[in-house]
């Protein structure tokens, strides 16, 4: 039993995501140093760490926004280290951005429709969708799922911050995601919106794994089964939420040490 779990967690074709020795330099600054990380399919994990710890950089390396300086990244067994971002996305990887990256001039529905097109061969289609178009229907369903049906026809520029964060999540759910990276999805949300977010995360189909970067422990520890702690571009602790919370070193560095 244990050995099977161990084998799966060590990697090979069994891992959803497998990073080995990933380093990312920005000039002289090492934003990530020798990060090795394995996440099982369907696993939900939090990445915690103080400002500038390298969490977002970790996501950028995984999606290919900024490829790593060295190291390898495997996605469901396939070496994607040198793949452009769109190739990774088409294989089922998704992400959200810490600072919403939406299309403010388009409506809510068109933003989601665009995301649905991106992971479909229809992305090059010169034909406008018809009323029974499956992608439009998929977009409608996603808009509904993130509680934005009431503002579906509004331009994104007119939305409140919390609604934009929800839309960001809808974009990451388009198509058939297998693994999602959420970068501080709860930042700036009201308590009600946080509860809705937790609902969305906990009701995702169980085969969809994710990594969530979240400063709010109430959100983070409720929606994950494992936690990775980062500091100065390195991973320094991994374990289940309960262990992390009670770990004195973590308390010292992160929970106690006031993180803005």
């Amino acid at each position: 039993m244990d050995s099977v779990a161990h084998r799966l967690s060590v990697g090979g074709a069994g891992a959803a995501l497998e990073l080995r020795g990933v380093t990312r330099l920005f000039g002289a600054l090492a934003a990530l140093t020798d990060v090795t990380l394995t996440v099982r399919p369907g696993e939900r994990r939090a990445v915690l760490g103080s400002n500038g710890a390298g969490k977002t950089t970790l996501f950028n390396c995984i999606t290919g926004d900024f490829p790593p300086t060295s190291g390898t990244i495997r996605f469901f067994g396939e070496d994607v280290t040198h793949f452009p971002p769109f190739e990774r996305i088409r294989r089922g990887l998704r992400r959200t951005y810490q600072i919403s990256a939406l299309f403010p001039g388009l409506t809510v529905l068109d933003n989601v429709y665009l995301a649905c097109c991106g992971v479909s061969p229809r992305r090059f289609s010169p034909f406008r969708p018809r009323s029974n178009d499956a992608l439009v229907q998929a977009a409608e369903d996603l808009v509904e799922a993130v509680h934005l049906a009431a503002v579906r026809g509004r331009r994104v520029a007119e939305l409140a911050h919390g609604q934009q964060r929800q839309l960001e999540i809808a974009l990451a759910l388009a198509g058939a995601p297998r693994f999602i990276l959420f970068d501080e999805p709860a930042a700036g949300l009201s308590p009600t919106e946080r509860r809705e977010l937790v609902d969305i995360l906990t009701t995702l189909p169980s085969h969809i794994g994710y990594i969530i970067i979240e400063h709010d422990m109430d959100v983070a520890l409720r929606v994950v089964e494992s936690v990775t702690m980062m500091h100065n571009g390195r991973i320094f602790k991994e374990g289940p939420p309960a262990d992390i919370e009670s770990d004195p070193e973590v308390q010292e560095l992160y929970l106690g040490g006031g993180h803005g």
Binding site: D65, Y97, A101, L102, F103, P104, L106, L114, G118, G175
Partner: peptide, 14 residues
């Protein structure tokens, strides 16, 4: 138009 406004986001939409 998405590519015009935010090419990086378009890439991570596939």
């Amino acid at each position: 138009q998405g590519v015009r406004d935010n090419p990086r986001r378009m890439a991570t939409l596939g």
